[in-house]
């Protein structure tokens, strides 16, 4: 897969949909494409996070290690993971383990912050995505409370 193809993939992700292709290309160029074998760990719960991953191909599961490992989500192409750890310097909240051969773009913390500062529109997009998630989580929380009552 060449850089141009990677850019095409990124443009399909809502977070990057409104970003100029030249900037996406810069981001691709500046980041490493990583291949993981099934069973390899993208990020481990409790580790210090220094990069986020955009999955270009393949599948992975999100596992939370509480007494026993619990699979909380399945993720695949176009998903972005690990952005929380690089945004707010907390250890990884869950492990992500490849379940098939998986290719991901590794965006380092440094690159991410540079991109956000240099291209504020990207920052706005990130906020939008996070806000959506927050809203979604709040809705879930409300539902859970209703259920509890």
């Amino acid at each position: 897969m060449s850089i141009d193809e990677e850019v095409e993939v990124l443009r399909k992700i809502p977070l990057f949909a409104n970003i100029e292709p030249a900037k996406l290309k810069l981001m691709c160029f500046a980041s490493q494409r990583m291949t993981f074998n099934p069973g390899q760990v993208l990020c481990g719960q409790g580790d210090v996070g220094d990069s986020a991953y955009i999955i270009l191909e393949g599948k992975a599961e999100v596992v939370v290690e509480n007494h026993a490992p619990l699979v909380v989500a399945q993720i695949g192409k176009n998903d972005i993971i690990g952005e929380i750890a690089i945004l707010c310097d907390v250890p990884r909240t869950a492990s992500v383990i490849a379940t098939s051969e998986l290719t991901a773009l590794e965006i380092t913390k440094d690159l991410f912050f540079r991109m956000v500062t240099d291209f504020p529109e990207l920052g706005v997009e990130v906020m939008r995505v996070l806000a959506h998630r927050l809203e979604h989580t709040t809705a879930l929380l409300l539902e859970a409370r209703k259920g509890a009552k």
Partner: peptide, 20 residues
């Protein structure tokens, strides 16, 4: 051509030049 395209908007002295 690629470099001109993707680095055009970056100010000179930006660390990306050095790195990438």
């Amino acid at each position: 051509r690629t470099m001109v395209e993707i680095f055009a908007d970056l100010p000179p002295g930006h660390p990306f030049f050095e790195q990438f």
